[in-house]
Design a protein around this nucleic acid. Structure first.
Lengths: 190, 190
DNA sequence: AATTGACTAAATTTAATTTTTGGTCACTAA
DNA sequence: TTAGTGACCAAAAATTAAATTTAGTCAATT
């Protein structure tokens, strides 16, 4: 059996999407990085979008797997949330794709990048909503609109990890965690 | 004494900036709305930017005055914050300019609009930071980085008032207040 | 002295042209 | 025979050129 060209292509494309975003990634470049002819890419993927989709699928699956692993631990809601935060902040590969795509949406508004961001956000929001729902059921969390609460938690996370950096020095992981706890777990008040 | 042409111009320009944003507001249009010759504008304002600055000053002053009025009430921190929220959500005139400029920054990235947004944000952030600082001093709020906490509160507010609307039905004022309380005052946990 | 609107230079938008890129397919090497 | 290739093409994007719009001026007019 010869080398797994599909894997090479996926690897090269992932690298390029993370580094340059959707639009600035050309099929020529991918073929060059992967050391295959351009035509070869099209024996595995119908279009550039399909290639992107498959990478997005993989990233989503990894995100899901992280989330499921965290959820399976069955500790408290806050603990789960912080574990999830840790996992995402530590293993940045998916996170980086997400950040790069978000930046591309902001800068040039590429439709496919927007789709990608929306998709990953949807997974995260759904997971959070579910966790909150359960925690409300078990009496751990106050009754509230779980969709809105999930949305706020995600926005807080994005505010601290990406928006803050636009006008300040980046916060380190622990500061981020501390401030998330401050609002979510006990409120800012004494 | 003849009519106050400067006031007419300021009024017309404000209307136009709120409605169309910085870039899409032309000096011709302002002069037409104000019923003055275009040259007249330049007897009061050196440039379009200066005209914009003066309107921004006015909006900032009004925001400051709302914030000071709220701060003077000397009730609890949460109460002050909610009063401020109410004031801003009810008297939307400044808020509308802010929202319009934020949209312009998002859509076409006008430099002057960005400056305007930054400036109004800076006032709000500074006020919040000060309030938090005081509340920490009086033992009402947990010791924390007041800049980061102020930033998070503002982002939450913006998330609920503008970002949520991109993918959902707008939340009404009371839902917004409720959810702000949920995170700030007592935390989401029971 | 205060106000104006036709006027101009500069900036923005639109149209035309060139370059780049996604996707194909006749061909090659294994 | 077949997996793999890269020159090739149409379509899209970037660049350049032409046309339009607009900020700001100033001689003329109240």
């Amino acid at each position: 059996m010869s080398i797994d060209r599909k894997a090479l292509i996926l690897q090269a494309a992932t690298l390029s999407f993370v580094q340059f975003g959707y639009k600035a990634t050309t099929m020529d470049q991918v073929s060059r990085i992967a050391n295959v002819g351009k035509g070869t890419i099209y024996t595995f993927f119908k279009t550039k979008e399909e290639l992107f989709e498959e990478i997005l699928d993989k990233a989503s699956q990894e995100l899901m797997s992280v989330m499921n692993r965290v959820a399976a631990e069955q500790t408290t809601f806050v603990h789960n949330l912080l574990n999830l935060l840790d996992s995402i902040l530590e293993f940045r590969s998916d996170h980086e794709l997400f950040v790069k795509l978000a930046q591309e949406v902001r800068d040039i508004g590429t439709a496919q990048a927007l789709e990608g961001v929306k998709r990953m956000e949807a997974y995260a929001l759904d997971f959070l909503r579910q966790q909150i729902e359960e925690a409300i059921g078990s009496g751990e969390v106050k009754p509230c609109d779980s969709s809105v609460a999930a949305f706020m938690i995600l926005r807080m996370y994005l505010a601290l990890t990406t928006e803050w950096n636009k006008s300040h020095e980046p916060l380190d992981k622990n500061r981020i965690k501390e401030h998330m706890i401050l609002f979510i777990s006990t409120g800012i008040l004494l």
